[in-house]
Every structure is written in structure tokens, then in C-alpha cells.
Design a protein around this nucleic acid. Structure first.
Lengths: 193, 193
DNA sequence: CGTCTATTTGAATGTACTCAAAAGCGGTGG
DNA sequence: CCACCGCTTTTGAGTACATTCAAATAGACG
């Protein structure tokens, strides 16, 4: 366990001095997560913003009909968590669990608030982080409207080739917004080409 | 034309003193836009982040097949623009035009960069802005996957009741990710209830 | 008043879903 | 090492939600 990766990532956007790095590191709570374990649960208020050091997490939402919808896969270097719950102290609408054994850092909301008060420089880092995440999500909306399921699957394969090794097909289907049966048929068609 | 609305909005998240308010106001470029006019065009690099003072704008994306997909409607108090283009100096993938006569402020990228250098306090404002926008977009993805078109239309009506007065049906259909014909049929069903 | 565009309506079609069953795959215990 | 269990993936048939295309109607604007 080391905070050097996350610090390096932050330093790509803002430059931290020794004091700032140490303070930030002191706020991070490290945890090892076993495959299948929950990091946050729908219905419960989330106090944590989660940074993945290694492994792979999945955030998903369960609708009224009981069907799951994967919102995001998070691998090394990504932040995740139910931002709505975290930001507004509302019960989470989605759950996050580990697809593989993982190593993560938690940043408590109260600590993040203090961090931003004490070193406003971090506002910039999170501004850039959210700005980029927003761009990504808008892009996803665009593609979910204008592309067929088959196109989206091919883009997914290109974008996240490594994920396919350990993410079950049904989770990928859910991420793409289709049923596992239908994704299976898409794959069959692909191999026939 | 006055910057008081936008300043009031910013002051809900950070408190600006006289000097900061004046400097920020000095960067804003005001423009009156006629219905149908373009504020930015797909293919062109966007230099502006756009704040709507009054009226209504629409941002949309044209896919390879030539079909338009509305990404966002922006009314008074909203920021809009192709963030990807603005942030990374890439050609815009979407266009923005006025659905009604509108009044807007442009904030140039170079001015925004300077603003953030000079008064880092604004980082906080934009961090919160993007964080909230991100929450909204993720929410939209969730609903577009788990709800039927009819449900999404009803939610749209509840959320943006005023938009229906001046937004053409075909634009609403596009925003919901369905064809105008199908939305027309949904509305027929609604009135039959 | 005529033209142009937006909306409605209907019929045929397609993409993706549901339900059901079979096949594959990984782990566990005998 | 094999047999069995549970879970994932595949396959197929029937269905539903939404689309396409075409035509009729309604609205907006000069």
C-alpha cells in the first residue's frame, strides 16, 4: 500500500509540496477489498469518495423492477462512489462492489471538505476531475442514443479491452443497457464474421 | 443587460468581494441572440463557455446518419457549450443554437484560465458546478436505461414544464432519444387516459 | 392565401426483450 | 478423479417497444 500513485496522478494537474502531499495522504483511509464485497450500498448515505489503487469495482443501480444497471467500472486510478449521496447527504441510489480483489483509498466527505478549506489548491484538481468526468458521461449519452447495441459493444471492447477478462458478460450487457441474452447473440454474430 | 443574476448565482457557492465581482464581470461578453441563431457549430473549436441570462438554447449532436440528438436545453442561469471542445481545443462535436430570442454571456477559455489563476476561489465555483452537472448526467443515464420512453417523457414534463411552451416536439423527442412520431403517439395515449 | 415545416396517423418492419430450456464452466465434496 | 451443484452463457421461439416510410392534417409565417 502506497499513496504515491494517487499523488502522482494529482500532480499531473496541480503541483503539491511536501506538506500538502503529507496532509492529503494522512486523510486517505486504505482498505483491501475481497471480490464480491460491497463498498457502498443503495439506501445508505455514503460518506466516502473512493479511489481505486488496484483491482476493479462496479457501481450499479437497481430499478423498481429489480433489474440491475451498471453505471461504471472503475479500475486503477479512478475515483468512484455515489456522488449524489456523497455531495448532498442523501441515501445512495447505487451500490458499489468489487469485481476482483481490490485495494482502495477512502476519502471521507468531512475530510474532503477540510482539505478544500485548508488547501484550496485541491479545488482545482477536483474541478478538472469532475469536468473530465462530465465530458465522458455526456459522450456516453450521445453514443447510447445514436449507436446500436452492437456498435456500443465494439466501442466498449476497444476502450476497455482488459475489462473483458474478469467482468462477467451479464455486467457488460448491463453497462451497455441490454440484456445478457442479447449480448450473447451479438457476440455470436461477431464470431460469424 | 446586467451581470447581477450570474453574480448572485455564483455568490450562492462562494462569496465574492467587490474587486472579484468586477473583474469577473469585466470578462463576460454579452450577446443578444435571435431565435434560430447558432452560438457554436460542430466541427469548429469552441472558445466560449456560455451562460444563459434569458431565453432558451439547445445543444445537439448530429450523428453519421445525419440524425440530430439533443443533449441539453439551457434556460436562464445555466451554463452550456461543448465542454470537450472548450477544454481540449478539439473541434466541437455538437452545435448550440437558440430556440427563442436569448441573452447570453460568453466566457472565453483564455479569460477563464486567467480568472482561475488570478482568483483561485473560482475553482471552487466551477468544481461545484461540474460536480452537480455530473450528478445530473449520471442520473439521466440511469433513467434512459431503466425507464420506458413514456416514463421518461412524463418525468421530462414534470421537470421542465415551462420548456414545452416553446420547444418543438421533435426536439423533445430527440432529447428523450426517440422519434417524433413515437412521441406523438405517446401524447395521444396520455390524452386518452 | 399559399408555402413550408411540424405534427399526427397508420401499416409494415426491426431491434431488442421475455421466457424457457440447454449447454458450459468452476468449485466442492465424496 | 469424478459427480454434482450452482451460476453463467448460449440458443430459440414468440413478443413488445419503438422505428421507418408514407400520407394526411395542422400550424406558422411571409
Amino acid at each position: 500500500m502506497t499513496t504515491s500513485n494517487i499523488l502522482a496522478q494529482i500532480n499531473r494537474h496541480i503541483s503539491l509540496d511536501e506538506r500538502e502531499s503529507l496532509y492529503f495522504s494522512s486523510l486517505l483511509i486504505h482498505a483491501k477489498i475481497k471480490q464480491g464485497d460491497y463498498l457502498e450500498t443503495a439506501g445508505v448515505i455514503t460518506q466516502n469518495f473512493i479511489h481505486v489503487e488496484s483491482g476493479c469495482l462496479m457501481s450499479y443501480y437497481t430499478d423498481k423492477g429489480g433489474d440491475d444497471h451498471v453505471i461504471q467500472f472503475s479500475t486503477s486510478g479512478w475515483w468512484t462512489g455515489d456522488l449524489h449521496s456523497f455531495t448532498k447527504n442523501q441515501p445512495a441510489v447505487y451500490s458499489t462492489r468489487a469485481l476482483t480483489d481490490s485495494s482502495v483509498f477512502y476519502l471521507l466527505k468531512s475530510d474532503m471538505d477540510q482539505l478544500l478549506e485548508r488547501y484550496p489548491k485541491f479545488e482545482r484538481y477536483f474541478r478538472i476531475l469532475f469536468q473530465n468526468a462530465l465530458i465522458t458521461q455526456v459522450d456516453r449519452i450521445i453514443h447510447s442514443f445514436s449507436d446500436t447495441a452492437e456498435d456500443r459493444y465494439e466501442q466498449f471492447q476497444q476502450k476497455y479491452p482488459s475489462l473483458q477478462q474478469y467482468v462477467p458478460l451479464k455486467c457488460i450487457a448491463s453497462y451497455l443497457g441490454i440484456t445478457p441474452e442479447f449480448l450473447s447473440k451479438i457476440r455470436k454474430r461477431q464470431t460469424e464474421k
